[in-house]
């Protein structure tokens, strides 16, 4: 009888201990979770509430307008311009960065002298502050800047432009800056993935008489599918949150030709005190991020099943 009690007590103690251990486990997660939930999730919820208000952010009694901000948004030509700009910017930069990154990774996997330096040059822009890159390019793009001087030097002076003052090419200029800063990222991921492509398969292809281009197209590119998906995903989110280079190089102009959703949010919410409208615009950005991520994941899964 005493033995039974002892066993029960021991079992109880150990159960108690494992319960305590489980509770302790939560303690470990709390700091990270507090920051993420407290700032990101609470932020999203709070933002969705603010998006139903007509509010300057100060008035103690904001006006409820329900879906009013969203109705206004749909009729707002600037919103559609910004959306179009982001879409165009995203599609072009993602494709160019992927193509260029893959090409550089392939070429640098060949017999190239000074590979380390080449790698570093392509990759360094990724780690530099966009604020610094923007300041430099703002200068390069001036009518009397380095870009026009270079075009002149190589006899392409017909291409000279006032790059960021011309609504026809300002978005293109921003795309170029993005390609400059982010190609190194695509390059790095492709390089890592390339090193895992089976050498034996490549040899087999070459023995079969496939040329380099053919080998790359039919053996290498399909094997890098996971990397394509990753780059497309991070590229979409990256485009949606692009702010620094736009704000610092063109400020969204000239004539809204480079307005992005993010710069528009900043102008509306922070500079014009249209907090409710800014919040509604933010909801669109959040919805787009989630929707596009979901669509891409689905496509990827379908692709893998087939």
């Amino acid at each position: 009888m005493t033995a039974t009690t002892a066993t029960t007590a021991a079992a109880g103690r150990s159960r108690l201990r494992s319960r305590r251990a489980r509770l302790t486990a939560y303690l470990y997660v709390i700091p990270a979770l507090m920051l993420i939930v407290g700032i990101i999730y609470v932020g999203v919820v709070y933002n969705s509430w603010v998006s139903t208000l007509d509010w300057n952010g100060l008035d103690p009694e904001p006006t409820q307008v329900g879906g009013g901000n969203y109705a206004r948004l749909l009729a707002d030509p600037i919103f559609w311009t910004a959306l179009r700009n982001v879409a165009l910017f995203g599609v072009v930069t993602i494709l160019v960065q992927m193509g260029l990154g893959l090409l550089i990774a392939l070429v640098l996997s060949g017999p190239v002298y000074g590979r380390g330096v080449y790698r570093a040059v392509v990759f360094v822009p990724v780690v530099l502050a966009p604020a610094a890159i923007s300041a430099a390019f703002r200068q390069f793009f001036r009518p009397d800047g380095q870009l026009n001087a270079l075009l002149d030097a190589v006899g392409l002076d017909a291409l000279q432009r006032a790059w960021v003052a011309d609504p026809q090419v300002a978005l293109l200029a921003l795309m170029a800056v993005n390609v400059f800063s982010w190609t190194g990222f695509s390059f790095l991921l492709y390089q890592a993935a390339l090193s895992q492509v089976e050498a034996s398969q490549l040899e087999a292809a070459q023995i079969d008489g496939a040329g380099t281009v053919r080998t790359v197209r039919s053996i290498v590119v399909p094997q890098l599918r996971m990397t394509h998906v990753t780059l497309a995903l991070t590229g979409v989110i990256g485009s949606l949150k692009t702010f620094d280079i736009v704000f610092l190089i063109t400020g969204g102009g000239p004539a809204r030709s480079t307005e992005f959703l993010t710069t528009y949010i900043y102008k509306e919410a922070i500079m014009q005190f249209n907090v409710g409208y800014g919040a509604a615009l933010s909801m669109i950005v959040l919805a787009l991020a989630l929707l596009l991520t979901a669509v891409q994941m689905r496509l990827y899964r379908l692709d893998r099943e087939s």
Binding site: A21, A25, I40, Y41, K241, Y266, A279, L290
Partner: peptide, 29 residues
């Protein structure tokens, strides 16, 4: 460590990767 709902907690943390922080300008401000 063992804890109920671990997977859920993990997902809650990682989902943060999809949300562009800049879209939280208004609530943060």
């Amino acid at each position: 460590l063992e804890m109920p709902g671990k997977q859920l907690l993990f997902m809650a943390v990682v989902a943060g990767l999809m949300l562009p922080g800049i879209a939280l300008t208004v609530p943060m401000f």
